[in-house]
Design a binder for these strands. Structure first.
Lengths: 169, 169
DNA sequence: CCTATCATGTAATCCGTTACATGATTAT
DNA sequence: ATAATCATGTAACGGATTACATGATAGG
């Protein structure tokens, strides 16, 4: 218990999701990630098995294993985990994202703009449409964080659409 | 020579930079990355030693080692390397970036918006100003890829500024 | 002349990805 | 029933980050 590990964004994602769920199995985490969060911060499903184990070993999660058939592992956030999560949430960050866009990278290194724009534009348009649809469906009661995140996604997708249109012109 | 390795974005960045330089040492690559590209796709300096070695072992780069004092390693792109780079450049991608923004992640998980916005806004404003200054300095002869990348950066930084202003309001 | 910083590199660790594998359900 | 797909998980590998380390150069 409580060996010192470094907490990565993945760690906080797992902590945050388990905390929100109360209790969760890796597979359930996978579902949640796939249903939204994964669009702006994806995690391989194998990580959702490995990371809770790490966190449990360090005392941030408590594991309960099913006795019968599947022997699924269910995880809960411990007091230490809740504290770590809160500490992270309460610490505003000045860290900046990098774009790290594969298409842009090619452009940077001299790829021909037109075909790239032709490939990129429709996928961004589609994703933008998805986000906007989601946003409309969002109820009044939706948590502010979720709404903000979606709005950030929409803003950046609009920017990409604008960008690739210009590049393709 | 020519063992099969997987080429990652890092690989193409190294190939692209070495190709542009004609010949380069890891340290020179580090300089180049630090002076611009790193803002939207950073690479740890240790990678700039490891990756050329990998690429050389696979036949994409040729290594020349200094005889005297420092015994620096100088790399050049081979024909195979040039072919790989061109293949990558010529293949338009539909891949999408994820936002993966640390601040947004906290917001998503329920961090208090105000302090986050307060921390994020100034750094984005500063970066935006930097980009805009760079853009002004860009000569007529600047490669299109560089110009586009910078413009993408500007667009997204504007979006972040707008976003965090709204979040903070 | 001394020390701080820049230049240059290697080693160790670990997270994340990819590949592999098998038990349960649903559809045909 | 049988195939196909979903559910659930483990193992292996490798790229990326962090830590460690030393030689050169410039400033005080």
């Amino acid at each position: 218990m409580s060996s010192k590990i470094r907490l990565t964004p993945t760690s906080y994602i797992v902590l945050g999701l388990v905390e929100a769920a109360g209790e969760a199995t890796p597979y359930e985490l996978k579902q949640v990630v796939a249903s939204g969060l994964g669009d702006f911060w994806s995690i391989q499903h194998a990580q959702l098995y490995a990371e809770p184990e790490r966190l449990a070993a360090a005392g941030y999660l408590k594991e309960r294993r099913e006795e019968s058939g599947r022997r699924r592992r269910h995880y809960k956030v411990t007091a230490a985990g809740r504290k770590a999560l809160k500490g992270w949430l309460d610490e505003p960050t000045e860290e900046l994202t990098e774009l790290r866009d594969p298409g842009l990278l090619k452009l940077f290194f001299g790829a021909t703009p037109k075909p790239l724009a032709t490939a990129q534009l429709p996928v961004h348009e589609r994703r933008l449409a998805d986000y906007e649809a989601l946003h409309k469906e969002l109820g009044e009661d939706a948590p502010a964080g979720i709404r903000f995140s979606l709005e950030a996604g929409i803003g950046h997708e609009r920017e990409w659409v604008r960008f690739w249109k210009q590049v393709g012109a």
